[in-house]
Simulated assay, not measured.
Amino acid sequence: MSATNDAVAHSDSISLDDEQVREYLKTHSDFLQRHPDLLDHLHVNHASGSAVSLVEKQVSVLRERNMEMRHRLNALTMNARENDKLYERTRALVLRLLDAKDLPGLCNAFMNSMREDFEIEYASIILFGDPAESRGNLRYEANEKVKLEIGGLLKGRKPLCGALREDEFSFIFPRAGEPGSAAVMPLKGDDRLGFIAVGSSDANRYYTGMGTLFLLHIADVLVRLIERLPDSDEH
């Protein structure tokens, strides 16, 4: 065994006393700078006015942690502001929907709000019915055709989010160019009424696992209104 290995083995077999630690730190004055994590385990009383570099280092570590906490707090504050904006926009949308006198007016309110208030790139509301009765933003599609085109997206009662195939995307958003991602929400009351969808040309904008509370809330409001509003204010 080499002399170096003998020294290591010997050092491992004995316990260090305070004086040895003290002498080592005096010889290696940058030890704590190279291992700042040890400061978490040290307790130093800073009682007098003379500067103590170790305490200053501890203060520096605490200052860094304080900055990290500030960044987290700022992030939480920004999220809270975004949630406030979403609440106000959702409230305004609900009021618009409640003011609608008929189904065309309801669809207009939904589409205009998605475009103007929420700045959604693509939006769609499709009701089951005779396509010949479609007009403006009121779009009817036969139940069978919807099942054929996007039946897999409407199986549950919750929104389905993610990238869509080109044929699915173009069916839901006929005016869109390249396919992207979307959130598709079925409208189900006493019967299957249709669905709403919001989309983006960005394939990653809507993804599995994202929050969909907004769409669930709007869908609940739409279902109740669709079931009671006339197809036209002439009825």
Score class of each variant (00 low, 15 high):
Met69Gln: 10
Ser13Arg: 12
Arg22Ser: 15
Thr4Met: 05
Ser53Arg: 12
Ser124Lys: 04
Arg139Phe: 04
Phe118Tyr: 10
Phe169Cys: 09
Ala176Asn: 04
Pro230Ser: 06
Gly189Arg: 04
Gln20Gly: 13
Met69Ala: 12
Pro186Trp: 08
His41Cys: 02
Arg96Trp: 13
Asn204His: 14
Ala176Gln: 05
Tyr122Trp: 08
Ile172Gly: 06
Phe195Arg: 05
Arg81Val: 14
Leu153Cys: 09
Gln58Asn: 00
Pro174Glu: 02
Leu73Trp: 02
Asp202Cys: 04
Phe195Leu: 11
Asp6Tyr: 08
Thr90Asp: 00
Cys107Arg: 02
Val55Trp: 02
Ala203Gln: 07
His46Thr: 07
Asp202Met: 04
Phe110Tyr: 14
Asp17Pro: 02
Glu19Leu: 10
Val21Arg: 08
Leu38Phe: 14
Arg65Tyr: 05
Asp99Ile: 03
Phe169His: 07
Phe128Thr: 10
Met111Asp: 07
Ser2Cys: 06
Val223Ser: 09
Glu68Ala: 12
Arg34Asp: 04
Ala163His: 09
Leu86Gly: 01
Ser29Asn: 08
Ala176Met: 03
Leu97Lys: 14
Leu76Lys: 10
Gly151Ala: 04
Arg65Gln: 09
Glu133Thr: 14
Met1Cys: 07
Ala7Ser: 07
Gly177Phe: 01
Gly152Glu: 15
Glu68Gln: 13
Arg205Asp: 01
Leu148Glu: 06
Glu82Cys: 08
Asp130His: 05
His43Ala: 15
His235Val: 03
Glu227Lys: 14
Leu164Phe: 04
Lys147Ile: 01
Val94Pro: 02
Asp190Ala: 11
Arg224Met: 04
Ala75Cys: 03
Asn79His: 06
His71Gly: 00
Glu56Asp: 09
Glu227Pro: 02
Leu216Ser: 10
Asp99Arg: 15
Asn108Ser: 12
Gln33Tyr: 03
Gln58Pro: 02
Asp190Arg: 14
Arg70Thr: 07
Ile125Cys: 11
Gly152Tyr: 10
Ser124Arg: 12
Gly151Pro: 03
Arg115Ile: 13
Leu154Lys: 03
Leu93Ser: 02
Ile226Gly: 04
Met67Gln: 14
Ser113Thr: 07
Asp190Gly: 15
Arg81Lys: 11
